[in-house]
Design a binder for these strands. Sequence first.
DNA 1: TTAAAATGCAACTATTTTGTTGCATAATTA
DNA 2: TAATTATGCAACAAAATAGTTGCATTTTAA
Lengths: 112, 112
Amino acid sequence: MLNNEMAGGAQKSALIFAALGDPTRLQLVEKLGDGRPKSINTLSSDFKLTRQAITKHLHVLEEVGIVRSERLGRENRFTMKDGAIKTARDYLDQIGKQWDDALTRLKLHVEE
Amino acid sequence: MLNNEMAGGAQKSALIFAALGDPTRLQLVEKLGDGRPKSINTLSSDFKLTRQAITKHLHVLEEVGIVRSERLGRENRFTMKDGAIKTARDYLDQIGKQWDDALTRLKLHVEE
DNA sequence: TTAAAATGCAACTATTTTGTTGCATAATTA
DNA sequence: TAATTATGCAACAAAATAGTTGCATTTTAA
């Protein structure tokens, strides 16, 4: 049923939106957007925040499936993982489409 | 540093994502998705939370431009406003596209 | 005009989030 | 091996968030 699919997507999407709802994390996502794995140190170097703060943000992104991490020697390298982003985008598409349809129906109704 | 440079629409989008990053607010958005104005009382009736809690959530959604409110008699009616949703969706599209391009380039590079 | 309905406002609490500092550990390199 | 590099972990504090209760105000209806 569409309603249940929607409700299910809402819970999952809320987690992803919450993860993206922080400017620092959003910038990390942008930085990782080139698809290349980056170490915590590399990622931290562009922020005023401490390395530990960035680490926490990366873990938040990892928990909701936006990035993944891989140990390489003494480095911990993070990479984008498109699944979660796609989930969020699809959700917004759905909302947008629902809204467009609603507007169309309302307009027709008014013109009746 | 990246913090002070303008990282695209990251700041604005982060606000919208943060607003959507709460299950209650996401449900409110879904409820308003039919395009019809709804009073606070109507919107509150479907949640376990108090009316005041819902009111606060609605104000959060209003501040980032996801909904708008209109006083009608003793009622305050809220309506969807697609602008912000579209901004967020476009942002995710951009990230998604950047990611796809990056993957393509990386793949080509590997095959060289 | 009185009662009910819908909302607004403020104070307060509890929890979560964000960030820090300090120290410990594992891997590299000189 | 000793120093350096990269990270992990934990305790702590400040701030933001989410929610409640209580009471006041404005509209509507009887």
